[in-house]
Amino acid sequence: MNDFTTWDVFRNLLYAVPWTIYLSLIAFAGGASVSLLLLVLRLFFPRFAAGPIRVYVQVFQGTPLLMQLFLVYFGLALVGFQTSPLVAASLCLSVYSSAYLTETWYGCVLAVPRGQWEASSSVGLHRWHQLRLVILPQALRLSVPPTIGLMVQIVKNTSLASIVGFVELTRASQVIANATFQPFVAYGAVALIYFVICFSISLGGRWLERRLVV
Rank of each mutant, 00 (worst) to 15 (best):
M1F: 15
T5P: 04
W7N: 12
W7K: 09
F10W: 13
R11Y: 11
V17H: 03
T20Y: 12
Y22E: 04
L23K: 01
L23S: 05
S24H: 03
L25R: 07
I26L: 15
F28K: 02
A29H: 08
G30F: 13
G30W: 11
G30A: 07
A32G: 08
A32N: 08
V34N: 03
V34G: 01
L38W: 00
F44H: 14
F45W: 14
P46Y: 11
F48R: 06
A49E: 07
A50E: 15
A50D: 08
G51W: 13
R54D: 12
R54M: 09
Y56K: 04
Q58W: 15
V59H: 14
F60P: 10
G62W: 11
L65Y: 09
L66Q: 12
M67T: 09
Q68T: 11
L69R: 00
L71K: 00
L71C: 12
L71G: 10
V72G: 03
F74W: 10
G75A: 12
G75C: 04
L78M: 08
A88M: 11
L91K: 01
Y96A: 10
S97P: 08
Y100P: 03
L101E: 04
T102R: 00
E103N: 12
Y106K: 05
V109T: 05
A111Y: 06
V112N: 04
G115S: 02
S120D: 01
S120N: 10
S121V: 06
S122Q: 02
S122F: 05
R127A: 06
W128N: 09
W128G: 13
L133G: 13
I135L: 00
I135C: 02
I135N: 09
A139P: 01
R141K: 15
P146M: 02
G149T: 10
L150V: 04
V152W: 00
V152E: 04
I154N: 00
K156G: 12
K156F: 05
N157F: 14
L160Q: 03
L160Y: 06
A161H: 03
E168A: 09
R171G: 07
R171F: 14
A172N: 10
A177T: 02
N178C: 13
Q182Y: 04
P183T: 09
A186I: 06
A186C: 06
G188P: 00
A191L: 06
F195L: 10
V196I: 11
V196K: 09
F199Q: 14
S200D: 01
L203E: 11
G205M: 10
G205D: 02
R206S: 12
L212D: 12
V214C: 10
